[in-house]
Amino acid sequence: MAGKVLCEASKLYNILNQYTHLPRLAESNYLCLIDARAAESYNFSHIITARNAKWDSDGKFIMPLDVDVESMRYIIVYDSSTHSLSDSGPAIDCADSIEKASQFPVQILSGGYEKFSALYPFLRTQKILYSIRELESLNPYPVEILPGKLYMGDYRQATNLQILKDLKMNALVNVSDECSLVFKKANCTVLHIRIADSSEADLIASFERMCVFISSHLNTSSSVLIFSALGVSRCSAVTMAYLMHHLKYTLKEAWNHIQKCKANMRPNRGFVQQLSDWELQTLGKRVTDISEPNY
C-alpha cells in the first residue's frame, strides 16, 4: 500500500505543465486526475483533464477501466476543499480505494477545487473528453518556482500574450538571443541578457544584475518570468542563481527545488561550474560537489 499524501496547488500546477517535446499530459501513464465532487459540480467546471469519480451502489469508488493504477506516475484526487489527511469526504474515500493498488502515494489536492481554481482560474474547463491530438496540442504554462511570484519557461511561452495575461506577468528576464514586440504589448518590463547556450559562455557576470532586477520586482508584488529559448539550460541556471542569492540556498538545494518544478531542466556543464563559483561567492564556501552524477 503506497499511502496518501497532500498535494499543494502549486505542485499540481507544475505537474499539469510539464513537457518535453510534447505535453506530458499526452502520456497514458503520466497523470490520472480525479474530481470526486458531485457530477453537477464537475460538469459546471473542473480542472483541465480531470475525470469525474464514479461510485458503485455501496458507495465505493470505481476505478476507470482505462487507468493502469500500478504504472500511473501521478494519481491526484480532489473534492471541494479537503485540507488535511485527517478530514473525511469524497477525496479521502476515493484515495483510500486507490492506494491499495498504486505504486506511488495517492495525492490529495490541498484546498481542493476551491483553492486551485481561485489560484489558477485559467486551468478550469467544462471539457470532459480529450483526444491524444488535443492533449498534444495543449499549450503548457511556465512552471511556478515561487508560488504566484517567480516562473520559469521558454521563448514560446514568454511570447504568448494570453499566458502573460493569465499569470499577471509584470517583468521578464530574457536569457535568449531573440526579442519580441509582444513584450511591449504585454506592458512587461524586460531585462534582456544576450548569451549563447554554450559551456564557454560567461553567464555568472550577469548573475548580480539579474538577481537585483528580479528582487526589485518581486518586492513590489510583481510576478517575474525567467525564460530562455527552450526553457532548459540558461533559464534554469539563472533561476538557481536567484534562489542561491535571495534564499541563500546551496547549489544542491536550488538544483533540487528547480528539478521538482521542472523535471527536464538541465544547465550545461559550463553553467554548472559557474553556479558552483556563485555558491562560493554568495555563501562564502563551496558546499555542493558538482562532480556527483546528478550535476
Rank of each mutant, 00 (worst) to 15 (best):
residue 205 A to K: 15
residue 177 D to F: 07
residue 166 D to P: 12
residue 270 G to Q: 09
residue 149 K to A: 03
residue 98 I to V: 10
residue 41 S to R: 12
residue 6 L to D: 14
residue 91 A to E: 03
residue 34 I to E: 02
residue 150 L to A: 04
residue 238 V to C: 04
residue 1 M to L: 12
residue 282 T to M: 09
residue 251 L to G: 02
residue 46 H to N: 12
residue 252 K to P: 09
residue 227 F to Y: 10
residue 47 I to G: 02
residue 144 E to M: 02
residue 61 F to L: 15
residue 242 Y to F: 10
residue 260 K to H: 03
residue 259 Q to F: 02
residue 126 Q to R: 09
residue 203 L to Y: 02
residue 86 S to Y: 15
residue 286 R to Y: 10
residue 61 F to Q: 13
residue 284 G to A: 09
residue 36 A to W: 02
residue 122 F to T: 12
residue 284 G to S: 11
residue 201 A to G: 02
residue 198 S to N: 12
residue 224 V to L: 08
residue 95 A to L: 11
residue 150 L to T: 07
residue 119 L to P: 14
residue 273 Q to L: 06
residue 165 K to Q: 13
residue 211 C to F: 00
residue 112 G to Q: 00
residue 213 F to W: 13
residue 53 A to D: 07
residue 55 W to C: 03
residue 204 I to T: 11
residue 196 A to W: 11
residue 39 A to L: 14
residue 120 Y to T: 06
residue 124 R to L: 09
residue 163 I to T: 04
residue 227 F to R: 04
residue 79 D to V: 07
residue 244 M to S: 01
residue 3 G to R: 08
residue 137 S to F: 05
residue 16 L to F: 12
residue 180 S to W: 15
residue 119 L to E: 15
residue 74 Y to R: 01
residue 123 L to P: 14
residue 266 R to I: 00
residue 209 R to H: 15
residue 255 W to C: 00
residue 57 S to E: 12
residue 53 A to H: 05
residue 281 Q to G: 05
residue 141 Y to G: 01
residue 193 I to C: 11
residue 54 K to M: 06
residue 76 I to Y: 01
residue 39 A to I: 15
residue 38 A to G: 11
residue 26 A to G: 10
residue 77 V to W: 01
residue 75 I to M: 08
residue 185 K to M: 06
residue 237 A to D: 05
residue 265 M to N: 00
residue 132 I to S: 14
residue 114 E to M: 13
residue 23 P to Q: 07
residue 121 P to M: 10
residue 217 H to K: 12
residue 127 K to A: 07
residue 99 E to G: 01
residue 188 C to W: 05
residue 102 S to V: 04
residue 47 I to R: 07
residue 26 A to N: 11
residue 258 I to K: 03
residue 141 Y to V: 01
residue 163 I to M: 03
residue 271 F to Q: 07
residue 180 S to M: 15
residue 170 N to T: 04
residue 245 H to I: 01
residue 113 Y to T: 10
residue 224 V to P: 08
residue 93 D to N: 12
residue 290 I to Q: 03
residue 37 R to F: 05
residue 38 A to Q: 11
residue 185 K to C: 04
residue 69 V to Q: 05
residue 110 S to P: 08
residue 115 K to A: 13
residue 14 N to L: 04
residue 204 I to F: 11
residue 158 A to E: 05
residue 250 T to C: 07
residue 256 N to S: 06
residue 49 T to Q: 13
residue 242 Y to L: 00
residue 101 A to M: 08
residue 36 A to V: 05
residue 191 L to F: 15
residue 170 N to K: 09
residue 215 S to C: 00
